[in-house]
Design a protein around this nucleic acid. Structure first.
Length: 275
DNA sequence: TCTTTATGGCGAT
DNA sequence: TCGCCCTAAAGAT
């Protein structure tokens, strides 16, 4: 379930539930057992998020660096199972719990190591200090398609497969357009859009990208029936009619990920690089 | 009861 | 570009 908005929301939610008090830490699944034993009974002092990376601060002991990967999840209720990599529990019976399952990364790191991870990441639309010109500097001289660039975490941190497809659609951009064919104005607009969309994603804890005037009620069509929850234009809608023009939404595997776009609303450009 | 898929990313080739 | 890691749920058989 994880794009950047999920991770920032988790940083908030975990902070609200556990920060400032001692927590019980354990690793039923075992792979984080040694570190969990070290953290057990200590105070969670801070949480932080950068792109898809989540950090839980335990003062002098350092930070737990978590990356959910494709299939990692965090649950705040339910009994621990033997697949739980890290379980946190607040004081007392009925206290808060957190179960982390299937993360790509869960490791205790130093403050310096945390800084280094952040330094490897591009600007994150959800961080107030983010500078979109840092991303522009690379986009504007790249021959790589904008669809591939948007997924490069060294370039731009936090955007995943859903926000990629949706922001390209919302700006009518051909996914195969090379970065250097993008105008600066268009990039600034896409960045501003990502900031707004992802902030809303944090608030609602889901991805919604469809403008109010295109929502099902306004368009006289049934709401999207999909397990992923949000209302979107093209993501995972391959073969279905585009919500705006009716053209069949297309899909193609690009760098091992499924890309979705509308060939009419995002018309091919001469400069585009078709794989 | 299997196989496939998923909002990621790494390292080997 | 490929295989691989982690887990759960949906889809196919």
């Amino acid at each position: 379930m994880p794009e950047g908005h999920t991770i920032h929301r988790l940083a908030q939610d975990i902070g609200e539930r556990f920060a400032g008090r001692p927590v019980r830490a354990s690793s039923p699944q075992g792979k984080f057992a040694d570190s969990a034993a070290l953290l057990d009974g200590t105070v969670l002092e801070a949480t932080d998020a950068h792109g898809k990376h989540l950090f839980l601060g335990f003062g002098p002991l350092g930070w737990v660096h978590i990356h959910l990967g494709l299939i990692g999840t965090v649950a705040f209720e339910g009994p621990a199972s033997d697949t739980v990599r890290l379980r946190l529990a607040g004081a007392g019976p009925g206290g808060p719990t957190m179960d982390l399952r299937g993360p790509a990364a869960c490791a205790l790191v130093t403050d310096g190591e945390k800084q280094a991870i952040g330094a490897r990441l591009g600007p994150d639309p959800l961080r107030p200090d983010a500078d979109p010109d840092l991303a522009w500097a690379r986009i504007s001289r790249s021959r790589v398609s904008v669809a591939a660039l948007l997924m490069d975490q060294k370039l731009l941190a936090g955007v995943g497969n859903v926000y990629r497809a949706e922001v390209l659609f919302r700006h009518g951009v051909d996914p195969f357009l090379p970065g250097r064919a993008l105008s600066r104005e268009l990039w600034r607009a896409m960045w501003a859009d990502l900031v707004a969309l992802m902030r809303q994603g944090v608030r609602n804890n889901r991805i919604d990208t469809v403008r109010p005037e295109h929502e099902p009620a306004a368009m006289g069509r049934p709401p999207r029936v999909d397990d992923h929850g949000g209302e979107v234009y093209v993501y995972r809608r391959a073969g279905l009619p585009c919500l705006l023009c009716g053209t069949e939404v297309r899909t193609q595997v690009l760098a091992a990920r499924n890309l979705f776009w509308c060939p009419t609303c995002q018309p091919p450009q001469e400069a585009s690089v078709r794989p």
